[in-house]
Design a protein around this nucleic acid. Sequence first.
DNA 1: AGGTTGACTCACC
DNA 2: TGGTGAGCCAACC
Length: 110
Amino acid sequence: MNEYDEQIYRIVAAIPRGKVATYGQIAFLTGCPGRSRMVGRALSHAPAARKLPCHRVVNHAGRTAPGWDEQRPRLERERIRFNPNGMVDLDRHLWDVAFLPQTSNPEEPL
DNA sequence: AGGTTGACTCACC
DNA sequence: TGGTGAGCCAACC
């Protein structure tokens, strides 16, 4: 695994229970905004041994990953709400790390 | 080497 | 809301 993937995994591991993050958000936190596709790829290849909460990552619209039917039940198990259209209610559950003070380092796990 | 493919996003309709 | 098209970039034919 390369350093960039490691960085992504660290950030994903820091997503709190009951919250979700978007691929773009994570790409931004790695210092490489615009690389959301790379985030998706890294997560799709994430080793199971890491036991990452990758179900807490959705796309910018709140849609869950295509072809992964277990993601939604997992989210609902943490009391995350879905809109009638099948999207995560981002207004309610989006990880608000972007609003943290600058003094905190989002790349450090909590 | 060059075309295709994605767990994506944005700007427009 | 939802569709489309362009930009994106590493992995994979």
